[in-house]
Deep mutational scan, measured.
Amino acid sequence: ETKSLTLVLHRDSGSLGFNIIGGRPSVDNHDGSSSEGIFVSKIVDSGPAAKEGGLQIHDRIIEVNGRDLSRATHDQAVEAFKTAKEPIVVQVLRR
């Protein structure tokens, strides 16, 4: 079962304390579909994302501050987090 969660993150020394993997390839599949998503791959101990109620590894990131990342490329997702103003509201899907 997958549930949708909304989390609020604040940077600590400029970092949110997690890494992402995935992202849509720069070239779409011929039918326009994509199974890619942006997923949390690593969480830094005691970083902002590790706090209670924070992110978990394998969370799929859907949205950052209202910006849809469900079909974003990896670079677009990285840029969305880099430029996001605080508080950073992150919507994820968690299995």
Rank of each mutant, 00 (worst) to 15 (best):
H58Q: 10
K3L: 09
P87T: 02
E52A: 12
P87W: 02
F18A: 00
G37R: 01
E86C: 05
G17H: 04
R95C: 07
T2I: 15
I43E: 02
S4I: 13
S13D: 13
V92K: 03
T73F: 02
F18R: 01
E36R: 07
E86W: 04
S33I: 13
S35P: 10
A72L: 04
T6I: 06
R71S: 13
V64F: 15
G22A: 15
D28G: 14
R71V: 12
V8L: 14
I20W: 08
G53M: 08
S33L: 11
A84H: 01
P25Y: 06
I61V: 06
H10D: 08
T2M: 15
K51S: 10
S26L: 10
I21A: 15
V90G: 00
H58N: 14
G37P: 04
A49D: 09
V92I: 09
V90I: 15
S13N: 15
G54C: 09
G22D: 07
S41W: 04
S34D: 15
D45W: 05
L5G: 01
R94K: 02
E36I: 08
D75E: 15
L16W: 07
D28H: 10
L7M: 12
D75T: 11
A50D: 14
E86F: 03
D59K: 00
G54A: 13
G23S: 07
R60D: 00
G53A: 08
A84T: 04
R24F: 12
V89Q: 11
G47D: 05
S13G: 12
T2R: 09
A49F: 08
R24S: 13
L9M: 13
V78I: 09
A50S: 13
N65K: 00
K51F: 08
E36A: 08
A50T: 08
I62M: 15
R24K: 12
G17R: 03
V44L: 14
T73S: 09
D45C: 07
S15H: 08
I21T: 11
V8P: 04
G47I: 06
D68G: 03
G54F: 06
R60I: 02
L55S: 00
G53E: 07
Q91V: 06
S15A: 09
I38W: 03
A72I: 03
G22S: 13
A50K: 08
A49E: 08
S13H: 12
I21R: 13
E52N: 12
K85M: 07
D31M: 10
R95L: 06
K85H: 10
L7V: 15
S35K: 11
T73Y: 04
S33G: 10
D12G: 06
V8Y: 15
T2E: 09
T6H: 06
L9E: 02
I61M: 01
V92H: 02
R67Q: 15
I62N: 01
Q91W: 02
R95A: 08
F81I: 04
G17I: 01
H30P: 13
T2V: 13
E63T: 15
Q91M: 05
T6W: 05
D59F: 00
D75H: 11
R95T: 12
H30L: 14
T2N: 15
L16F: 04
S15F: 07
E1A: 10
